[in-house]
Structures are given as structure tokens and as C-alpha cells.
Simulated assay, not measured.
Amino acid sequence: MIASLGMYDHPAQRWANDAIWSAIAARLRAVGIAAPLALDRARSVEDAWHAPDLLLAQCCGYPLVADPGLDLRVVAVPHYDVPGCAPGRHVSRLVVRDADDARDLAAFRGRIAAISAPSSNTGANLFRDLLADVADAAPFFAAVVTTGSHRQSAFAVRTGVADIAAIDAVTYAALARHEPAALAGLRTIAVTRPSPTLPFVTARATPIETVAALRAVLSDVVSDPQLAEARAALFLSGIVPSGGHRYAALLALARDAAARGYPELR
């Protein structure tokens, strides 16, 4: 079985993810579940999502409901203590260069956007939803470049490769704390609507008894005072058991944008 916590794993946070996972694995092993001793950082998070032996990972909410190739079960939903994010919800911050004279989203028509991935909820889906209000059912940008990560999207804007990007608020908080130079010269011009945070997931084939154990262990870990420092390093303030029903709203956002004449970020 494998485990991955790669979605929020800035180099300065890796010790915290390792500490959280060690606590989870020890508790699972105590009840007879052969949890891996270490997180798998050798494979991409996307590869982890498709692994039939996935025990636990975090998954972007949009591919969870939009990619028919994913066969995952939602275990729980995290709460993050970052600006602008209610419990169990997060937003994207649309960042532009400080020196850019544009003062609203409409002023970026004909400019260049950066996205982390076309399937990213915070990098593209929420961005598309916001743009649908100003695109007037027509292509909005001169070009859209895919960068591979929120950090690289911020870099693309800073260096002039792009003019605007949507950055996940939790990633933004990590960069602001641990790598402020990555956000130097940028400002937030708009904020998307909130959506559910990245869920903890397991392979659909994981036995229901193991799913129940995962939920119990996550609830225990998030309240363990010995892990307070690790949780604070990850901005993690809570984890609540959940199913996947709340993520249907993300697919609805995409369909609503299409109904407004803006089916893809362009």
C-alpha cells in the first residue's frame, strides 16, 4: 500500500507531513493495518491517485469528479487556517504584477494567463468560473500557458511570461511564510468563490473497515497535542470525516461556466 501527501508539501513543510504520516501509520498498524512507514514521494500525485493500492492521499477536488479514470473514495475533508478560507473551504487568489496598471479582471482581456494544470480546481476551474462573468461568451485571453504548479504560475507572472494566474490560497500562504521571494512584486486583484478543500482519499477498493479506521485515525491525529507544531506548519486546523457528495459542486461550476458561454479557460 502507498501513501502520498504531496499536494501541500513545500520543502519547508516536509518534516510536518512526515510527522503527521508517522502518527497515522503507527495508529493504523496498531489496529492491524499494514500502513507504509514512509510517504511515497517518488511518484507524482496523479500517479498516486491512480494506484489501486492507494491507502491515503490528498486529491484535487475537480479531477475527483471530472476524471472517469479515477476510482477513489473520499475519507475526510481538511480545514485550513489561512486568510479568506472558512472551515472545509478554500479559494484561489488571482495574482498580477504590482507594476501592472490593470485594476480589475476585465482589464486582462487579450493578455496571457498561467494555470497550474487544466484539471486543477484552484488553478483553472475556479478561475474559469470567475472569468465566465466577464468573458461575454468569447475567448478572453490571447494565450493560456500551463506551468505544472501554483508556484510556477506565480513565477510566470513575476517574470512576465504571463500576466495573471490563480493561486490556491493554502499554497499562497505556504509561499508567503516559507518563500516570500516567490510572491515578491505580486498583488491579488481578485478572489474566486470558495469551494471544498482538497479531500483525503483512498482507493475505491480499500475495505470499508480500513476506511473507518482511516477516519478515526485522522480525527485522532488532528487533535493530538504532540502534533500541534506539525499541524501549524501545514496550516491544518481540523479534519472531518466526509463522503464525496460535496465535490459534485465543482463539476456544476464547470457546467455553469459552459452554460454562460465559457466552456474552457481561453
Results as ranks from 00 to 15, higher is better:
M1C: 05
A3Q: 00
L5G: 04
D18N: 06
I20M: 14
R27C: 04
L28D: 05
R29D: 01
V31W: 02
G32D: 09
A34G: 05
L37R: 14
R43I: 03
S44Y: 09
V45T: 10
V45Q: 08
A48D: 06
A51T: 06
A51E: 08
D53Q: 15
Q58G: 04
P63Y: 04
L64S: 03
L64I: 00
V65R: 02
C85G: 06
G88K: 01
L94N: 04
V95C: 10
V96C: 00
D100F: 03
A102I: 00
L105Q: 02
L105V: 00
F108R: 09
A113K: 11
S119W: 15
T122V: 08
T122P: 10
D129Q: 12
L130E: 11
L131N: 02
D133Y: 13
A135N: 08
A135W: 10
A138F: 00
V144P: 09
T147A: 07
H150E: 00
R151S: 15
S153M: 02
D168T: 10
A169I: 09
A169S: 15
A173E: 07
A176R: 12
A182R: 03
G185P: 04
R187F: 09
T188L: 11
I189F: 12
A190S: 11
A190Q: 13
T197Y: 02
A203H: 12
R204G: 06
E209S: 15
A213I: 01
L214A: 03
L214H: 06
A216P: 07
L227K: 08
R231E: 04
R231Q: 08
F235M: 10
S237M: 07
G238Y: 05
S242A: 15
G244W: 06
L250A: 07
D256P: 12
A258V: 03
Y262S: 07
P263S: 10
E264W: 07
L265C: 09
R266M: 14
